[in-house]
Design a protein around this nucleic acid. Structure first.
Lengths: 337, 337
DNA sequence: GAAATGAACGTTAGCGTTAACGTTAAACCT
DNA sequence: AGGTTTAACGTTAACGCTAACGTTCATTTC
């Protein structure tokens, strides 16, 4: 009929082993109903025939696949790489392969990917954050496939959720700033609406400071570049215009760019200006001046998320979502006024 | 028979539209043989029924999938993220989804992944580097699936290859060092055999220097950590023991860690010591002292690789592999002696 | 005006695998 | 001894889709 590749099928193995195809199927999957002697024999024949199972046929027959879809905003930076590693290793051990996508912070891109992914009957879908296209939510709520939202925290997840509370993180930062006696904090972020988690943290800082009747918090939002460059230019902008006594950055990489900007401008840290990062990335560990930051449990998040999801796939009930804890790391880039 | 999800099938759409399933199939795929009127009608019905095509069934019927498998050593660092982005965007446009895996520099892990991936009848497979498990090579050479090896260059690829010549890169570094008059270069790398490309670059440097009858090039190989930390400790080790007049690093991130180590030890750059990185990462652009490095065409590599592969998938002949060009970036961390 | 053409649709037969159920014969029981 | 159980297989019918080929009927052609 069609030009097929001459790959060995289960049928070929069966013929060579003088058994039925079901016996081969059972032998290869390691399920009961085959004597150990036959199983060994079949495995050997399969190997000599270079038999490769056809996952498409399998997934069609059992109406699901051992694929899990993982959607991340970006591959840039260590943050998502670490979350990803935690998840992947856990899934790998359980026999699942992951199909990864990056949305570059676009809800439309995420929706498109979810649509495509669903056509593969995945065992589970993982999304980053809790801010999705309405249709994405509708699609996933209607489907029986387990869904995990990671990195953010919400009390109203699509299905499962494992993350941190970014608003709380902002409040923690604000609290520390307040205790140090900083009067005019500023924030360096990405373009408005690009990263809603960064905005949530900013809101957390605001929540602490607005009760004090201080002015609005100046925010620099340089055009998108690498984190280092964004932090560098954001800091320059703030130093040159708003003259804050503290700059909080979206993450440690940006904070590092900011530190470089300070050096450039001759601003002394922490005497003239305080600097706070986010994530406690490894970069901070080699800096001559320890960065004040917040450690986010990225690997834990990935592992916990994956475990919960596996439990859910296996029909086990999963605890309601709770925000994971963070650790505030006081460093040498902030000091009491 | 089995407990199926109640997802709409092509048959349900056909029934509702009063046409045969073939007409629906044609309409949804956008192929000829359906009037525009009927096509619109069918598309509408499919939408109201929330019909999601079953890729497993499709792939089984046509004996291939629109998946491409991509294997990378790691997600850490910007390097592979950039290669990946270039590839993914190109594939995305052509309607292919990517299944990504990281091997963490293990040939066995790569082999396992290749085995699993092959079961999905992917449209293509992409591996990083040219150093693979013999069985991986045998498996892929025997299969009709197009294969691309990326990042490294070789004249004897499994199928296609798009990359740079790391030995040549090392020679370029060595040449520059020689011209500056450095007498005792050293190298900071990862554990022996971990990254054969780093070793190839080291060999390139050696090739330049060994003719001069100088002693062996000292190499620090700190245990695996993040790049920053590795560079930091590697540099400390070399400064404290070998006292080189130049340290070449596996990449810019390590070089940055090295710079921090120099600051720690009070070593002045470039007066007391020269520093050379690799990759021209964005980090370098915010450093107060411009880093001497080599720019690698990462995005270009991804795009070129994906394009070649697409051509190959479509049966078009592809040029024999040629190493992509690199650009040496003289910076302020090296200077004539 | 009969035959040839072709656009628009339908029918059939798989793709390679597995769930469900059927069969066989040896082991076990009372 | 006759029936019952059970391990070890086999047969059949899907899973949802598409390539190949068949059919129909309005147009065109000479």
């Amino acid at each position: 009929m069609r030009a097929r590749s001459k790959n060995a099928r289960i049928e070929d193995v069966a013929a060579k082993a003088n058994v039925s195809i079901m016996t081969v199927s059972r032998a290869l999957r390691g399920v009961d109903g085959v004597s150990e002697k036959k199983r060994a024999e079949i495995l050997k024949i399969a190997r000599t025939l270079k038999y490769v199972p056809n996952s498409n046929a399998r997934s069609l027959a059992v109406a699901n696949s051992n694929l899990v879809g993982i959607s991340l905003p970006t591959f840039a930076g260590e943050v998502f790489a670490e979350i990803l590693n935690g998840m992947r290793q856990t899934f790998e051990k359980a026999g699942y392969s992951s199909v990864i996508d990056t949305t570059e912070y676009s809800r439309d891109a995420e929706l498109n990917w979810v649509r495509r992914l669903l056509s593969w009957q995945p065992a589970a879908i993982i999304l980053t954050g809790v801010d999705h296209h309405p249709e994405t939510i509708a699609l996933l709520k209607a489907s029986p496939i387990p869904v995990l939202e990671i990195w953010d925290h919400t009390n109203d997840p699509i299905d499962l959720c494992v993350g941190i509370d970014h608003f709380e993180a902002g409040k923690t930062i604000g609290q520390h700033a307040l205790e140090c006696g900083y009067k005019s904090p500023a924030f360096v972020s990405t373009p408005k609406g690009h990263d809603i988690r960064a905005d949530a943290r900013l809101e957390g800082i605001r929540a602490v400071y607005q009760n004090l009747g201080g002015g609005p918090i100046p925010v620099a939002r340089p055009p998108l570049q690498s984190a280092f460059t964004t932090g560098y230019h954001g800091a320059l902008e703030l130093i040159d215009t708003a003259q804050p006594d503290l700059i909080c950055f979206l993450n440690d990489h940006m904070a590092f760019g900011g530190l470089m900007a300070c050096e450039r401008r001759g601003v002394s840290i922490p005497d003239d200006l305080g600097v706070i990062g986010f994530n406690a990335l490894d970069l901070a560990s080699v800096l001559p001046k320890k960065l004040t930051t917040i450690r986010t449990p990225r690997r834990l998040m990935g592992v916990t998320g994956a475990r919960n999801l596996l439990a859910r796939i296996n029909g086990v009930k999963v605890d309601p979502p709770a925000a994971l804890p963070m650790e505030f790391i006081p460093g040498e880039t902030t000091s009491p006024r």
